[in-house]
Design a protein around this nucleic acid. Structure first.
Lengths: 107, 107
DNA sequence: CAAACTACTTTATATTATAAACTATTTTGT
DNA sequence: ACAAAATAGTTTATAATATAAAGTAGTTTG
């Protein structure tokens, strides 16, 4: 896999999907956030948010802690060290792609 | 739609899909490129490349010109003005997301 | 002149995302 | 008190999407 283009074309879909890219980028900026804050942020339906978070958790990119706050369920979400690494790397790849595109010419 | 996060979460999938993001970014850097150059660049199978390009063409983001060169079929692909606008806007949105993430805090 | 190659397109299948329906509990109105 | 609505999610079914595999039309090579 020589060029950034090829790298991007085969990019990690888990992270690249827009909703999850937003979530991971936001989570990389804070210690933790709860379900509703993330829902307000992204505008996702609760169903979609739930599925996206589960997917991120299964891959070890976030951890979820479920507790009761004021007698109501509350889910705190936190990015893992692995998650922080892969999202940072993902942004690096995107930046590389954009930079390299400036002077690409067809063979 | 208030935040960049929400904008991104509802981002144009057509452009965001990694292969097409690569293709459009590359095409925005040159007058035109042919099928094989794009295939070399992205590492896509010809089947996938064909489908992705057709999708971009249907949406008016690229135009394709089919001709014979040295007795062989040859497909030249060129980004349209609309295509140039939407890919540039897409990159702007991604940059905004990343910038805004730096100082996001859960409500 | 048959077999292999080039440059694709079409189709079938597997993956993925989204919406809708559901669960469990709590609060509000009468 | 108790039905209705709200909260905070999860599960499931369906629709959309991507990828791989097979097919087409023509060309070159042994």
């Amino acid at each position: 896999m020589s060029s950034v283009f090829a790298e991007i074309a085969a990019l990690d879909k888990l992270l690249h999907e827009p909703a999850r890219l937003s979530l991971m980028t936001a989570l990389s900026a804070c210690k933790s956030a709860d379900f509703l804050a993330l829902q307000r942020l992204t505008g996702l339906t609760s169903g979609n948010l739930s599925v996206h978070l589960s997917k991120l958790e299964e891959s070890g990119l976030v951890v979820m802690e479920k507790q009761f706050v004021d007698k109501r369920p509350n889910t705190q979400v936190q990015i893992t060290e692995k998650g922080r690494q892969v999202i940072e790397n993902h942004w690096r790849q995107l930046e590389n792609l954009r930079r390299d595109a400036q002077n690409w010419r067809p063979d």
